[in-house]
């Protein structure tokens, strides 16, 4: 029998883990219902699911297309199981590839991104688990609105993307101007647009303008 290459192995095991995750996650509400001895009426589930599905099913299609090329194969199989992609897994993978000096679409990029995302998944899972079990009595005080830490936790996302962004902007400042300006202008018209909408828009605008700049010979020479 032919030996499996690393790449084909990632897909083979990735799909197995993905299906296992799907079954496990579906089993959870079943287990809760069996344990509590109640089954919700289907119409309540559908009524609750409808607005969520209308918003999140199309978004998840866009997410898969947008993030997959950035995460790599191993990173994708891991990230879509553990979630928190935009605020954690993706920046973590990008940071690791940047530090290791490897290209995202190379095999070196693939393994470095997988190692970073796997580490991040393990650390996140353990922090949440330890936090829930050990610190549940004191944690409300830390994250309560009146705590001194609360304002800092509110600003995790800008703090994260500021540091990540600046190293990209220094290298590719020509590419950065158009998407940032476009997003800010969009938000001036409709400030409530969520990042779920802004990310695909930003990615498409950024790639279009980069393509034009490349054709003009302004970048990538």
């Amino acid at each position: 029998m032919k030996e499996r290459t690393y790449e084909s192995g990632v897909h083979f095991y990735g799909i197995l883990w993905d299906i296992a995750a799907l079954l496990l996650f579906l089993m959870l509400p079943v287990a809760i219902c069996l344990h509590l001895g109640v089954w919700p009426e289907a119409r309540y589930v559908f009524e609750g699911l409808l607005p969520v599905a209308l918003l999140f099913y199309p978004t998840s299609v866009i997410e898969v297309f947008t993030y997959t090329p950035l995460l790599g194969a191993g990173g994708t199989y891991l990230s879509f199981v553990t979630g928190n992609i935009t605020n954690l897994k993706l920046p973590c993978g990008l940071n690791a590839m940047e530090n290791a000096g490897v290209r995202a679409n190379s095999e070196e990029g693939e393994v470095i991104s997988t190692i970073a995302i796997a580490t991040s998944s393990i650390v996140t899972t353990l922090i949440i688990a330890v936090g829930v079990v050990a610190f549940s009595p004191v944690l409300p005080y830390l994250t309560d609105d009146s705590s001194v830490f609360a304002p800092a936790f509110d600003q995790v996302v800008p703090a994260l993307f500021g540091a990540l962004g600046i190293s990209y902007f220094m290298k590719h400042w020509k590419l950065a101007f158009v998407p940032i300006a476009a997003i800010v202008i969009l938000l001036l018209f409709n400030g409530t647009l969520s990042t779920g909408v802004l990310i695909p828009v930003g990615v498409v605008i950024s790639m279009l303008s980069a393509h034009l700049m490349y054709k003009k010979g302004w970048v990538g020479q």
Binding site: R103, G162, L175, I183, L186, L187, G202
Partner: peptide, 27 residues
Amino acid sequence: GKWADVMSAAAFIGLIAAFIGRAIAGK
């Protein structure tokens, strides 16, 4: 390869721009 490198950097920057834009002008 060069075009693909530019496009992959542009995709990252588009993503980052969404978050930076929200920190500047999000409601």
